[in-house]
C-alpha cells in the first residue's frame, strides 16, 4: 500500500509541481498570480486540442505552455502596466481562463487524444520499490524531477536568478543598476504562466487523457497556497505537492480497503495533512517572502 500511495503521490503531484514552480517564479519576482488556476486550464485545453488536431501530444504540450503564458500576459498587462490590484486581477484572470476554456472546449469534451504514454525507464524501473514509485511515469513527470532542482539552482546560483529575486526584493535597487524590474516581472509571469500551462497539459494529455470543463478542480489554487507554505522554496514546494497528492492517494486506498473512517475526514485529509506538516516544519513564523511581493510598483 505504501508503494501505491507514493506512486499516486508522484503521479498526481506532477501538475501541481509545475504550477507551483510557475507561481514561485512569479512571486520571487514580486508578483502574486492567482491566475495560475486559469493558466492550468488553458494549458490543459490547448494541449488537448492541439494534440487531437496534430496527432502529436508533444506539440500539444508546447501549445499548453504557450496558452498558459498567454493568459498570464493578461495578468502582466493589468498588474505591471495598469498597476491594478494583483489579487483581484488574478482572480479575474482565473475566471477568464475558466470561461474561455469552457466555451472553446465544448467541442472537445469526450474526444480522444493521442496520449503522452508512460515510459518505464529501462533498468531503473526494475529497482525494488523505488522503480515503480519514481521511474514508471509519463515523460512530463520525469521533466518535473529535473525542473525542481533546476529552478532552485537557477534562482540562487545564476545571475538571471539573482536579478529575478532582486525584482521581488527591491525593484528600486534593480532600477538603479539599470535593469527594468517591469521587464523582469514580465518574463517571470510568462515563464510562470507557461509552467502552469505545462502542468495543465500534463493533466489532460498524460494523466487523464480527457478534457472536461474546470478539470483542474482547484489545483492551481493549491499550488499558490503551497508556494507560500513552502517559504518560496522549490524543493519544499515539491514536497508539499507530493504530500498533497499523496494524501489523496492515501484516502482513495483507505476507501478501497474498506477502512471504517469517516469519508468527510478522508476527503479533507489532503488539506489537513499539508497544513499540519508545513506548520510543523516552519517553526519560525512564515517569512522569507520576497520583500516587494504584492506591492504596487510604479516603475
Amino acid at each position: 500500500m505504501i508503494e501505491a500511495v507514493l506512486t499516486g503521490a508522484v503521479a498526481g503531484g506532477t501538475s501541481i509541481v509545475f504550477a507551483g514552480l510557475g507561481e514561485l517564479t512569479c512571486e520571487r519576482a514580486g508578483v502574486i498570480n492567482l491566475g495560475t488556476e486559469g493558466s492550468m486550464l488553458c494549458g490543459a485545453l490547448a494541449a488537448y486540442v492541439v494534440g487531437i488536431n496534430t496527432g502529436s501530444p508533444w506539440l500539444g504540450v508546447l501549445a499548453g505552455i504557450a496558452a498558459g503564458a498567454l493568459l498570464a500576459s493578461v495578468h502582466a498587462v493589468m498588474v505591471l502596466h495598469r498597476h491594478a490590484n494583483q489579487i483581484a486581477v488574478g482572480l479575474v484572470v482565473t475566471f477568464l481562463g475558466t470561461g474561455l476554456t469552457s466555451l472553446f472546449g465544448q467541442d472537445y469534451v469526450g474526444k480522444g487524444v493521442q496520449p503522452l504514454e508512460s515510459w518505464a525507464i529501462p533498468g531503473l524501473s526494475k529497482l525494488p520499490f523505488l522503480g515503480t514509485v519514481l521511474f514508471d511515469h509519463d515523460p512530463l513527470t520525469y521533466l518535473s524531477f529535473v525542473a525542481v532542482p533546476l529552478v532552485a539552482w537557477g534562482l540562487w546560483r545564476t545571475r538571471a536568478g539573482l536579478i529575478l529575486r532582486s525584482a521581488g526584493e527591491g525593484p528600486e535597487v534593480l532600477e538603479i543598476y539599470g535593469t527594468s524590474a517591469r521587464k523582469v516581472r514580465w518574463i517571470a509571469l510568462l515563464v510562470g504562466g507557461g509552467l502552469a500551462g505545462l502542468g495543465g497539459a500534463q493533466l489532460s494529455t498524460a494523466a487523464t487523457l480527457n478534457w472536461s470543463e474546470g478539470m483542474t478542480v482547484g489545483r492551481g489554487f493549491v499550488a499558490v497556497a503551497l508556494v507560500i507554505f513552502a517559504g518560496w522554496h522549490p524543493l519544499k514546494l515539491a514536497g508539499g505537492a507530493y504530500l498533497f497528492s499523496g494524501a489523496i492517494a492515501l484516502q482513495l486506498q483507505l476507501q478501497a480497503r474498506g477502512w471504517e473512517i469517516s469519508r468527510y475526514l478522508l476527503e479533507s485529509l489532503p488539506y489537513v495533512t499539508v497544513l499540519v506538516v508545513l506548520a510543523l516544519l516552519s517553526n519560525r513564523r512564515i517569512h522569507g517572502g520576497p520583500a516587494a511581493l504584492e506591492k504596487v510598483f510604479e516603475g
Binding site: 487523464t208 478539470m215 486506498q253 474498506g258 476527503e267
Partner: peptide
C-alpha cells in the same frame, strides 16, 4: 468496492481511483 471522489468530475482523481481499485 466503492470510492467516493468528492466531485462529479475530477478526472485526475478518477484515474487514480481506477488504479486503486485495480490494486
Amino acid at each position: 468496492i466503492t470510492i467516493a471522489t468528492g466531485s462529479w468530475c475530477d478526472p485526475s482523481v478518477q484515474s487514480q481511483s481506477v488504479k486503486t481499485l485495480l490494486d
